[in-house]
């Protein structure tokens, strides 16, 4: 199907979101909660755009581009004054909630609009409730964390705010967090995350700690990866692979 984004005609498949089509056509739409590997949630509302049903339509509707499935003939504007203002408000609100998150402050400066300083949260964390960590943990199959409580008190936590057997200490949540909210302590012997300590497995090749024992068990249980994935770190696996190529080539 055909649609127009910021005056640029774009081709799209049914079921695609506006964001997908825009990015493919190198049209920039800022996002926070979106991640290509995860299902959309439409939580941050930074990616809002204005849409009209067809070129002659006057009434525009503001939608989240990460969730809105494209329709034939759709007219999308990604940077109307209204859209820009809404994004600004979203960032202003997040900046007040997370005064210590430099990523938010940077994005806010980049917007360059009339920023409003809202009352900063006294106990503000860096968490912007994007749910990336929760969705990633779900995708991995662990479901160790979730958004608990509701409204402004909502926070990401393991059940009972306590150690849980569901967590394997893989660290994906921390790696995918856009603001560095999730604290991780790494030592050669253990990794500490969500107030829980996980023993590290050492690489059979170089001896470096490369994943937690619990992660290794979890991944092995899936039975989808080659055995060397659980014994060797990524660098050693690459080196071994390179060595094999060399042998094949000579």
């Amino acid at each position: 199907m055909q649609l127009v984004i910021d005056g640029i005609p774009c081709t799209a498949e049914s079921g695609e979101t506006i964001l997908q089509v825009a990015r493919r056509n190198r049209i920039d739409i800022p996002t926070l909660c979106h991640h290509d590997a995860l299902e959309g949630v439409g939580a941050c509302r930074l990616c809002v755009v204005a849409v009209r049903a067809h070129a002659e339509a006057v009434d525009a509707q503001v939608v989240a581009s990460c969730m809105y499935a494209v329709k034939d003939g759709l007219q999308v504007d990604t940077a109307t004054p209204e859209v820009r203002r809404l994004r600004q408000t979203v960032l202003d609100l997040l900046a007040a909630r997370c005064p210590d998150a430099p990523e938010i402050q940077a994005l806010r400066e980049r917007m360059g609009g009339d920023a409003i300083d809202y009352a900063p949260a006294v106990d503000g964390s860096k968490c912007i409730m994007c749910y990336r960590c929760v969705r990633a943990c779900e995708a991995i199959g662990c479901n160790a964390i979730a958004a608990v409580n509701r409204g402004p008190q909502k926070e990401i936590a393991p059940p009972f705010f306590d150690a849980t057997q569901r967590c394997i200490g893989c660290g994906t949540c921390a790696a995918i967090c856009p603001t560095g909210h999730i604290a991780v302590t790494e030592t050669p012997q253990y990794r500490e995350i969500w107030s829980q300590r996980f023993a590290m497995a050492q690489c059979a090749g170089c001896g470096a700690p490369f994943m937690t024992e619990a992660t290794r068990e979890h991944l092995a249980g899936l039975g989808k990866l080659k055995p060397d994935y659980f014994t060797h770190c990524a660098a050693c696996r690459q080196r071994d692979a390179a060595a094999r190529f060399v042998r094949v080539g000579t």
């Binding site: 979203v90 909630r97 409730m129 509701r150 909502k154």
Partner: peptide, 12 residues
């Protein structure tokens, strides 16, 4: 009563 899912409602 806000569920807390989206920024405008939760923070706004």
């Amino acid at each position: 009563e806000s569920c807390g899912r989206c920024v405008p409602c939760r923070e706004g």
